[in-house]
Design a protein around this nucleic acid. Structure first.
Length: 752
RNA sequence: UGGGGUAUCGCCAAGCGGUAAGGCACCAGUUUUUGGUACUGGCAUUCGGGGGUUCGAAUCCCUCUACCCCAUCCA
């Protein structure tokens, strides 16, 4: 990874590598083989395998198969297939959590011996009841104080299968009143007399996710265990297990990112299953589904999926990506790759009255801007078909195609003009009688002199091949579908009698095509045969004409008023706090905000009072305490603080006496909170005394101005934002030591 | 009601005290025998709201609001 923008995970990885925490990066993609992978898995695959690749590490593929009742071999195959299809290689590193069952069992025994785990014999309902609620602490089971020997014995017998499902469980002994519900003595093992698709009937107990996952990571030497946001609360157990077992370092750490959501579709296993089992779609590889198999069958390329994953980035905010982003990736990928051919989906007959015989027109497969070679011959004859909506008897404004008055070019062929419109008894147009201009032939010197607004696709009636085309639209009609009631009834449209130029079928130049002016299509890998060709629409082309014609009804309101925010109520101050507040605002002239914070926080308040004893500058002092000291307290225990009120008083004094600027003060503060040195020493040692002498500052300003003529011009043209830029530059050049107030005044003068 | 997270353009998303990146979408224009592509330009005086600190705040402090996750012997 060089200069490319890094996501937060790569930043962490890079730092860990730099600091020497790990020699080599090991990630893992750890799905449970209990369902078919979807594009959310692709994101995870892209992250885990991508990071491993970028930092010369490796990524394991691990099947997290700890629940025998849900898992199956067919899913592990689908998962392997998905990873491979996306172009990643796990090499030798295919693992199964079930391979570690005996190691994990040994770790459990160890925990029991340490008195950190116990066999609980409460019923399922009791366990739930004892767990408490989010606001009330739970209480510990009476079985928690069984002796180590008894636990060991019971656990072994659980393993041997002496008990029925649900009779006992193994739990970690942590804290039944922990604020994090997950830490209230989490279950480690449960009894399950079930057949495991790999381990067979060897085990009658199975480890829970929270116990198996961290240990599997550790066993495999994983360094960065990357999972989705909903596991944030599980991180505490992850660390507890690894720490309590006192495992030899290095050990893995868990990091979480937001799972992928896309609008107009669903991503949860449960909802996907409902669609498939309810027959709302045709199997897991239905091209409308966001499953890997679905995208694959639809015609999406692995590159397009991977590019999509790169584009959307990795972050921690729950978000819903617009399908348009995905559609862009596949268009973008296919545009320079795929041959263009002509297909007519809704044919309208055109008879060219002044043409006799037949000929073959030579046409390149690729447009002028795609640097690829290849061409085919297209038969041309008297009877053709064009797309029904490429003719209009009463054209709307801005219509470029064929009309009774407007000629059009047949792509790669001749210009034609409409002579007569034939209708049936109901007034439907059934045929166009047309004439062509022999001297307008494509590829030759066009001497017809006719200007045409567009070129349309067509096929020769006698030569065209009949194909089936499946047009897919979004599966749901709403952006955030809840369930089957939101299904789009028109998500699949099958056209049985589309007509395509013969070369596509006879030459088979590719499996993906652009049907010109319509979209990208893919020869269906399952149903396609030479006798019965079937094409899936991958995605349409951008269509600014369709957009324009539709626009009228879409113009909805947009002046969205700024959201009104309700201010919540602030907890009122106690009498004592109020008294303190009054004293600070009245006697010491502190502003309300600062006084308020001080009055409500006993520690900060004491800290401030103490500092005040050595330095009588209440305002400066209180500002440092409320802002800087408060920040330190956020991540450091009060008693761990490396500085004391006297240090702060010294710092405030230097500011008061104008020895240092407040900017420098921040830097000094930071040093101080790390090293515990006294501030005066830091200032002296680092030579941080501020420069207030204009004679020293002016040359720097001149230099900055001379170096940035563009920005000077912009600033003078009215871009006031740039002022900060100049100050920043000057400060940078003086190592932050120039007195910013003076710099401000001088720069302002200079730039007048 | 406790704990853990998250809020930057219509949708993603950089940014970590000194000029609000980028992509998608959208809007113009140029090129074009695809109303495609490519190219050019336009799209956040403002970062969930309100205060505070600072010469200077999306970034630091306080506070409020909204949303997500946690009480499966699922993962």
């Amino acid at each position: 990874m060089n200069n490319k923008k890094k996501d937060f995970l790569r930043t962490i990885v890079e730092n860990d590598l730099k600091s020497g925490k790990y020699k080599e990066i090991v990630t893992r993609f750890p799905p449970e083989p209990n369902g078919f992978p979807h594009i959310g898995h692709a994101k995870s695959i892209s992250i885990n395998f991508g990071i491993a690749r970028d930092y010369n590490g490796h990524c394991n593929l691990r099947m997290d198969d700890t629940n025998p009742t849900k898992e199956d071999t067919k899913y592990v195959e689908a998962l392997e297939d998905a990873v491979r299809w996306l172009g990643f290689d796990w090499g030798e590193n295919l693992y199964f959590t079930s391979d570690y069952f005996s190691q994990i069992y040994d770790y459990a025994v160890q925990l029991i011996k340490m008195g950190k785990a116990y066999v609980d014999s409460l019923s399922e309902d009791e366990i739930r009841e004892y767990r408490g609620t989010v606001t009330e602490p739970g209480k510990r089971s009476k079985y928690a104080n069984r002796s180590i020997e008894e636990n060991l014995d019971l656990f072994e017998r659980m393993k041997k299968g002496e008990f029925k499902d649900g009779e006992h469980v193994l739990r970690a002994k942590i804290d039944m009143s922990a604020a994090n519900m997950k830490m209230r003595d989490p279950l480690l093992y449960r009894i399950r007399h079930a057949h495991h698709f790999r381990a067979g009937d060897e085990w009658s107990i199975y480890p829970m996710y929270d116990f198996a996952h961290c240990l599997s990571d550790y066993i495999e030497g994983v360094t960065h265990s990357i999972c989705t946001l909903e596991f944030e609360n599980n991180r505490d157990i992850y660390n507890w297990v690894l720490d309590t077992l006192e495992l030899k370092p290095p050990r893995p750490y868990q990091y979480e990112f937001a799972r992928l959501n896309i609008n107009y579709t669903v991503m949860s296993k449960r909802k996907l299953l409902e669609l498939v089992e309810g027959g709302y779609v045709n199997g897991w590889d239905d091209p409308r589904l966001p499953t890997i198999a679905g995208y694959r069958r639809r015609g999406y390329t692995p590159e397009s999926i991977l590019n999509f994953c790169d584009q959307i980035g990795i972050a921690k905010a729950n978000s819903v990506v617009d399908v348009a982003q995905l559609e862009f990736s596949i268009r973008d990928d296919l545009n320079p790759k795929v041959p263009r051919v002509m297909c007519v989906l809704d044919p309208l007959k055109v008879t060219i009255e002044n043409y006799e015989g037949s000929e073959e027109l030579e046409a390149p497969y690729y447009p002028h801007d795609v640097p690829k070679e290849g061409s085919r011959k297209i038969p041309f004859s008297k009877e053709l078909y064009i797309e029904r909506d490429d003719f209009s008897e009463n054209p709307p404004k801005g219509y470029y195609r064929l009309t009774p008055e407007q000629p059009v070019r047949l792509r790669h062929g001749y210009i034609i003009t409409c002579k007569e419109v034939i209708k049936d008894a109901n007034g439907n147009i059934v045929e166009i009688k047309a004439e062509y201009y022999p001297d307008s032939k494509s590829g030759t010197k066009d001497t017809s002199g006719i200007k045409v607004k567009s070129a349309i696709q067509w096929v020769s009636a006698t030569d065209a091949k009949k194909i089936e085309v499946r047009l897919y639209d979004r599966l749901f009609k709403t952006e955030a579908p809840e369930g089957i009631e939101d299904l789009n009834p028109n998500s699949l449209q099958i056209i049985k009698n589309a007509l395509i130029e013969p070369a596509v079928i006879t030459q088979k130049p590719d499996e993906r095509f652009q049907f010109e002016r319509q979209g990208y299509f893919y020869a269906d890998p399952v149903d396609y045969s030479d006798e019965h060709p079937v094409f899936n629409k991958i995605v349409g082309l951008k269509d600014s004409w369709a957009k324009k014609t539709k626009e009228k009804k879409v113009t909805t309101s947009k002046p969205q008023a700024k959201k009104v925010q309700i201010d919540g109520e602030v907890v009122p101050m106690s009498k004592e706090e109020q008294a303190l507040f009054d004293k600070y605002t009245n006697d010491l002239k502190l502003n309300n905000e600062v006084a308020n914070t001080l009055a409500r926080d006993a520690f900060l308040c004491d800290f401030f009072e103490e500092a005040l004893c050595t330095c009588n500058a209440p305002v400066t002092l209180s500002n440092i305490v409320v802002n800087e000291v408060a920040r330190e307290l956020k991540h450091t225990e009060a008693k761990e603080l490396k500085f004391n009120p006297v240090h702060i008083a010294q710092l405030a004094k230097m500011i008061e006496e104008d020895i240092i600027s407040s900017k420098i003060a921040k830097q000094v503060f930071e040093d101080m909170s790390k090293s515990g040195e006294n501030p005066a020493q830091i200032v002296e040692a680092k030579g941080l005394v501020q420069i207030s002498d204009p004679a020293q500052i002016l040359p720097v300003i001149d230099e900055v101005i001379a170096n940035n003529p563009d920005n000077v011009a912009k600033y003078k043209a009215g871009n006031n934002k740039l002022f900060g830029f100049f100050i920043g530059q000057v400060l940078k050049k003086t190592g932050g030591k120039a007195n910013p107030k003076i710099v401000n005044a001088l720069v302002k003068q200079k730039l007048m």
